[in-house]
Design a protein around this nucleic acid. Structure first.
Lengths: 227, 227
DNA sequence: ATTTTTCGAGCGAGCGCTCGATAGATTTAT
DNA sequence: ATAAATCTATCGAGCGCTCGCTCGAAAAAT
């Protein structure tokens, strides 16, 4: 479904580097990618454990093995580091959700099902990144907070459009609530926000995906088709 | 439905004071409640704006009008203040959700509907408190984090028990997913977590409650009863 | 007169961030 | 081929500042 090679920390850091070529001081790409990867890995690990604010740059330096000064070759402030990570998450969401396979896009039901599965699998592939984004985006400066809210609205819009089309084409109940698109998002988020709980209960990702799909489709489809 | 007088900041602070009589240095109850109320009001206000960690005790002192030393007559550490608030939230959830009216408890469908409405109305009555608990609980020390997780599981259990009974009594589909109870919680949370979004879109609380109730019941009930 | 409550300057620790020093790689000059 | 010059990447002690928290004194209440 998703190619795992596209979501390794290294691959994602390559994408980050490309976007910040001008602000990153290290010129040689192999060196830059290698070090950026260990920095980001460490940053995600520590932040997911105790929060981004609580992670000091000395923590990050020690765990990544890069000196204080060395860190500042890759970002010019702690807030910039935050933004680099959040932007990469938003970028991947856009890249992955924006173009469904042709045969899927043609049918609202298939499209909705695909969106749910793909979103959950994307968050699974980038678990520390989404955990980070969810945990941190709320507590930060106005501009970062707004960017996070925009990204959220963008995701919601993918669902809203499909539902609207499904209703227009008569595949969904005409009474389908316009609120539904908003309510799908928290269902998808629960998988990575409460990941520990689902791991403890040994819920497989396929089970989770199927449950959410069924939950949503029962709300959309006419009664007879709900089973 | 809920008596607003029970959820004023002052009423809640009275409950907090009772629970921490031994660690609060101020002896006269009227004085203690009055000051605790302004402290908690200020703490919730600042924390909801920029996060509990980012709120310094100097911020809190200035905004509440209570001196640094004065604050420490009400808690012995910043973490204690956090716990006092989280405990009060957990206490109210327990108090309100634990005893449904008799006529409601008798019927699984009515009980489930009641739980959804009551939980959403409770979070609305204590909006800054729940916003605070949601925002902060994740980022904090192990013991606080565990307490928050326990409280969450407790809430989930209310829903799990009703659903189980509904299935046993033949009111709900036998295939009703055991995951459903977990998935209800994020739907309820969205109301206070994304409160700004729903306010902007002018979604009334009654609309939200009805939408969630319909969403959940469609997942539980046999197909013919879904409308 | 004595207890209770309030005050806020001050403490040590830790924060984000800077910057001069330096070791290694690469280019240029001879 | 070798020496000199230049550039790149890395380092970590130290700066100014704010943090959570304390404590002895002042003020208010009894």
């Amino acid at each position: 479904m998703l190619d795992p090679a596209e979501f390794t920390t290294e691959a994602l850091c390559r994408s980050m580097l490309a976007r910040h070529r001008d602000t990153i001081g290290v010129r040689k790409p192999e060196v830059a990618i290698r070090k950026l990867t260990v920095i980001i890995k460490a940053a995600l690990e520590v932040s997911n454990r105790k929060g981004f604010q609580a992670m000091s740059l000395r923590d990050l330096s020690q765990i990544s093995g890069v000196s204080m000064g060395g860190l500042y070759a890759y970002f010019d402030s702690k807030t910039t580091l935050l933004n680099m990570i959040l932007q990469e998450v938003a970028e991947q969401v856009r890249r992955v959700l924006a173009d469904p396979p042709g045969e899927v896009a043609a049918d609202p039901v298939a499209h909705l099902t695909w969106l749910i599965e793909t979103h959950i699998r994307l968050t699974e592939a980038m678990l520390p990144w989404f955990g980070f984004a969810f945990l941190e985006a709320k507590t930060f400066p106005p501009s970062e907070r707004r960017a996070a809210a925009d990204s959220e609205i963008e995701t919601e819009a993918y669902f809203a459009r499909v539902i609207e089309r499904g209703v227009a084409e008569g595949r969904f109940r005409t009474e389908t609530s316009p609120l539904l698109a908003s309510l799908i998002k928290p269902l998808l988020q629960d998988w990575y926000v409460k990941r520990a709980k689902y791991r403890r209960r040994e819920v497989a990702i396929e089970t989770y995906i199927a449950t959410v799909q069924d939950f949503v489709l029962r709300a959309c489809l006419a009664d007879r088709n709900g089973g």
